[in-house]
Amino acid sequence: MKTILTGLATLSLGVMLAVGLVGGSALAEEAHSAAEPTHFPMIKPQQEKWSFAGPFGTYDKGQLQRGLKVYKEVCASCHAMKLVAFRSLEELGYSEDQVKAFAAEYEVQDGPNADGEMFTRKAIATDYFPSPFPNDEAAAASNNGAVPPDFSLIAKARGVERGFPTFIFDIFTQYAEGGPDYIHALLTGYDHTPPEGMQIPEGTHYNPYFIAGKSLAMPKPIDDGQVTYDDGAPQTLDQYSRDVSAFLMWAAEPHLEARKRTGFRVMIFLILFAGMVYLVKRRVWANVAH
């Protein structure tokens, strides 16, 4: 009897292992056809250092202001950010008047007026970042058929799969910066040459960090020296990418600092309270065998 059972158990374990091994090696083969890859991105993004990472992370306001400048001068010509209101820019360290002046640089549609006509007016603080195109169809028409995605949530809407076992470690290292890492990698990843034999469709641009294919419709959007910084930060592609990634993280998760701050208090309370309840539990059960 025992031998039958042992046999059964070893058999199932053995089959599991074998299936695992065969599977693993087969996958390894699949992944390595360089010219026609089937899994994207071809290169996983590098893990960068971010001021907002970790349990005590906070946004670097100077960086966010630079990122806003990059967004405004480069990205905003194609990418909308329609969930972000100008009023929230005060969180970047601007005064109410600065925000008002910033908003007034944009035109938004309003109306209808008394004559029933729509009209445009200068944006005010309670308006949201306007879309550069009147609708998705117009956006697609002027961008080679691809609609530039809205940027309000892009830093949370993109994340490259981490794979086993990294995704387990991520729980303990609190890795939650997949979005900014990806944006940074994509923006700095345009200068690679495609592997030999790879066909790049017309009108698209090779980028091995792109999450959904080997190339994307957006050409390299920004390069060294394109945006002038007035705080002395280096005017390099790498710095621009970092700053705009951080800014987009803020746009997607404006309450990150409050969340982590509250979290710290809650954790301290819960741990202390758990200790107290544990002591009570020990007292209650002290003279009871269990």
């Binding site: 939650a176 982590k260 710290f264 954790m267």
Partner: peptide, 22 residues
Amino acid sequence: FILFAYFVFYMPNYLGHPDNYI
């Protein structure tokens, strides 16, 4: 609750999928 709070405050999107922010 400690486990729960850890996810809510430090990894709130870990168990979700990025595509649901599109």
